Measured scan of single mutants.
Amino acid sequence: MIINNLKLIREKKKISQSELAALLESSRQTINGIEKNKYNPSLQLALKIAYYLNTPLEDIFQWQ
């Protein structure tokens, strides 16, 4: 199971779900699903999230 700190990191950087979704060329619903652990992002999307949040991938997503 993958757990994530996306919501915590996103809020700390003062970025809304909609703003992050626009940067990622994704939907706000996708970001919401990832944050609620209802959806696991593809590797490509996970890497883009890490890039746009300027945060190491392993700080956002962790195996448990």
Rank of each mutant, 00 (worst) to 15 (best):
M1I: 10
I2E: 04
I3T: 10
N4A: 03
K7N: 05
K7F: 07
L8N: 13
I9R: 04
I9K: 01
I9G: 01
I9W: 07
I9N: 01
R10H: 02
R10I: 05
E11C: 13
K12R: 13
K12Y: 09
K13P: 00
K13E: 06
K13T: 06
K13G: 04
K14N: 14
K14F: 08
K14H: 12
I15V: 09
S16L: 06
Q17G: 04
S18L: 10
E19L: 10
L20T: 00
L20Y: 02
A21T: 03
L23Y: 13
L23A: 15
L24W: 02
L24M: 09
E25W: 05
E25F: 09
S26N: 07
S26T: 15
S26V: 15
S26E: 15
S27G: 06
S27M: 04
R28I: 15
R28M: 13
Q29E: 15
Q29A: 14
T30G: 02
T30K: 10
I31C: 04
N32V: 13
N32L: 09
N32G: 08
N32C: 12
G33R: 15
G33Y: 14
G33H: 13
G33V: 06
I34A: 01
E35S: 02
K36T: 15
K36D: 13
N37F: 07
K38M: 14
Y39V: 14
Y39I: 15
Y39W: 12
N40K: 14
N40W: 11
N40S: 14
P41G: 06
S42Y: 04
S42P: 13
S42N: 08
Q44Y: 10
Q44E: 14
L45C: 12
A46E: 08
A46M: 09
L47S: 09
K48S: 08
K48V: 05
I49F: 02
I49H: 00
A50N: 04
A50F: 05
A50R: 02
Y51L: 09
Y51D: 07
Y52F: 14
L53F: 07
L53T: 01
N54P: 04
T55G: 06
P56T: 04
P56H: 07
P56K: 09
L57I: 11
D59K: 10
D59R: 08
F61R: 00
F61P: 00
F61D: 01
Q62A: 09
W63V: 04
W63C: 08
W63A: 01
Q64E: 14
Q64M: 07
